[in-house]
Amino acid sequence: MKWVLSHINPIQGNENPTFDDMKYAIDIDEKWFYLNPDKRRLYLLPSEEDPYMAQQSRRFKLKAMFMAIIKKPLYGRNGELLHDGKYGIFPFTQKERAKKSSKNRPGGTMVTKPLQNVNREAIRDMLINKVIPAVVEKWLESLPKNVVIQWDNARPHQIPRDEEFIAATQAHGFNIEFVFQPAQSPDLNVLDLGLFRSIQSLQYQSFPKNVDELVEKVIEYYNNFKPEVKKYIWVTLQSCMIKILKAKGGNKYKIPHMNKKKLENLGILPNQIEVDRSIVLEAVEYLNTMFRPAPQGNHEAETEDTEVDAD
Rank of each mutant, 00 (worst) to 15 (best):
W3F: 15
H7D: 09
I8Y: 00
P10K: 13
P10E: 01
G13A: 09
N14T: 13
F19P: 01
D27A: 13
E30D: 01
W32E: 00
W32L: 06
Y34Q: 14
L35I: 07
D38A: 11
R41G: 04
L42R: 12
S47P: 00
D50Y: 08
M53L: 12
S57A: 07
F60L: 02
L62V: 14
K63L: 08
A64P: 01
I69Q: 11
I69G: 07
I69C: 15
R77G: 13
G79E: 02
E80T: 14
H83C: 02
Q94E: 15
Q94R: 13
E96W: 07
E96N: 04
A98V: 01
A98G: 09
K99Q: 01
S102E: 11
S102D: 12
V111Y: 08
V118T: 05
V118I: 12
N119R: 14
N119W: 03
E121K: 15
E121Y: 07
A122E: 02
A122F: 04
I128Y: 10
N129S: 04
K130S: 04
K130R: 15
S142A: 12
P144S: 14
N146K: 14
V147D: 09
V148E: 10
I149D: 10
Q150E: 00
H157E: 00
Q158F: 14
P160V: 11
A168M: 00
N175V: 00
Q184P: 05
L188S: 06
L191I: 01
L191M: 03
D192G: 10
G194K: 10
G194C: 04
S198T: 13
Y204N: 15
Q205H: 13
K209P: 01
V215S: 01
I219W: 04
I219C: 15
E220G: 05
N223E: 15
P227G: 06
V229A: 06
K230V: 07
K231L: 06
Y232E: 15
W234A: 04
Q238E: 05
C240A: 02
I242D: 11
I244M: 15
G249N: 07
G250T: 03
Y253H: 02
Y253S: 02
K260W: 02
L263P: 05
L266I: 04
G267Q: 10
I268F: 05
D276I: 03
E282I: 07
N288G: 06
M290N: 09
A294G: 06
E300G: 03
E304K: 13
V308Q: 09
D309H: 08
A310T: 13
A310M: 10
A310Q: 12
D311A: 12
D311N: 12
